[in-house]
Design a binder for these strands. Structure first.
Length: 203
DNA sequence: TGCCAGGCCCTCTTTAGGGCCTT
């Protein structure tokens, strides 16, 4: 598979806007079955972090006060990722923040997102649930650090994506695995995934 | 004033409702 960039945002809430901004971004580049590059930074936006989010992520208002400005961080991570296709766990969430934070520095996303959660629902239906942490423990993937910090979660999502592409290759006999295939599979109705995997194997 | 996401997926479905998943 071509290189992919797996990203994860920590934020002050659930939907980007004036009172909800990113607090941390991590991106890892995955190539030849392993992580070959890492970017991580807190980012200062001036938006207050509610106590619930401080408790969840461990990212405090004091930590962000000393962080680099969001525009500088987003410029840097956009350069780091370049045109490499993106992956995130529940990508609709990270895509909203990626697009919103880029728009604030007058940049536009040029690549598509694949979603490790939508893929896991189809490829790993036997998992107890499809939360990132649960899937990583269930698949016995490495512990990458404190959950709900951007780099730990990005590495977990990267390892999970590698686990699923490994299954596509080894269990389903699919040789031509690409970001585009992941994007196609995540849209197949869950009940028809077997059919789609057969088609991909014979392609 | 009071509200506050949204796309996906399943089912006791399709003229709908509710859980999942991300912070």
């Amino acid at each position: 598979m071509e290189p992919i960039a797996v990203i994860d945002f920590e934020t002050t809430g659930i939907s980007p806007g004036q009172s909800c901004r990113a607090t941390e971004i991590a991106a890892v580049i995955v190539e030849d079955g392993r992580i070959v590059g890492r970017f991580q930074s807190l980012m200062k936006t001036g938006v207050w972090v509610p106590p619930f989010i401080e408790n969840l992520t461990g990212i405090s208002n004091a930590m962000l006060h000393a962080a680099p400005p969001a525009d500088e961080v987003m410029e840097a991570v956009a350069e780091f990722v370049g045109d490499i296709p993106l992956v995130a766990h529940n990508a609709s969430f990270d895509q909203k923040f990626w697009d919103a934070e880029l728009a604030l520095i007058r940049r536009q996303r040029r690549q598509t997102f694949a979603c490790s959660m939508l893929l896991a629902r189809r490829l790993l239906p036997q998992a107890p649930n499809h939360k990132l942490g649960t899937l990583n423990s269930w698949a016995r993937l490495p512990v990458t650090g404190k959950a709900h910090r951007a780099m730990a979660d990005a590495e977990m999502a990267a390892n999970l994506t590698l686990f699923m592409t490994g299954q596509l290759r080894d269990q389903h006999g699919i040789q031509a695995i690409s970001h585009n295939l992941l994007c196609r599979l995540q849209k197949v109705p869950a009940a028809k995934i077997g059919e789609a995997l057969k088609l991909a194997r014979n392609a």
